[in-house]
Amino acid sequence: MLLNIKNLHVSIDGKEIIKGLNFSVNKGEIHAIMGPNGTGKSTLAAAITGREGYEITQGEIIFKGQVINDWSPDKRANEGVFLSFQYPIEIPGVSMTNFMRTALNARREYRKLPPVSAGDFLRKMEEKKKLVDIQSKLTNRSVNEGFSGGEKKKNEIFQMAMLEPELAILDETDSGLDIDALKVVANGVNQLKSGENAFIVITHYQRLLEYIVPDFVHVMYDGRIVKSGGKGLALELEERGYEWIKEQFDD
């Protein structure tokens, strides 16, 4: 099992957001997590990646057999957890190239490998750029600075391709994308998919799931997974909306 979450409780500023969540992911699987706004989907992503301010009050997150509750975000990343951010941050003055090279070498150092040579690095950049149809002028700029919404999301997928994670979490990657950009992003993901990695796709709408076909769909509500099923569940949600879920669980 790649990821196993047991009875997870997460609080922000003392307020409980995730209230006893159980969830597991095996290699080669794509899981979609859906649900209305404010039910804890992004909080789950933050808890898995170790974001500050998200306090795990109960339960365990087990990644590749190790409890990672107390690990720093970079250690988790170097073990193979990748988050495609809903709102990628701008880092002025730090070029994409420099950023990626630092990240890649951090990972290699973690695995006791020598730093990547300049030539190999550039070749890899070129190869992965094609995957998401990202233009060279973007990689010459500072990280996310002045990128459009679509460019930022493509850039996230590009970084995923560069870092080759075992578990990738896509947090609302479809929000703010037009249909063409959506296809590019989905295509990138599908090409990266293998029997050795897994994806968690957090989304509000079914739209993305037409292009990235999930093996499992989970519905989150009020800090828990309240319903799980196959890809048919997504279609049902699309048709019926979230209201029936809410009605079922509000009392």
Binding site: S72, P73, D74, A77, I91, A103, A106
Partner: peptide
Amino acid sequence: SDDQLFYCQQRGIDK
């Protein structure tokens, strides 16, 4: 910003 730091860390770069 904490967000910038977290972004870098999420990519495996230590603090």
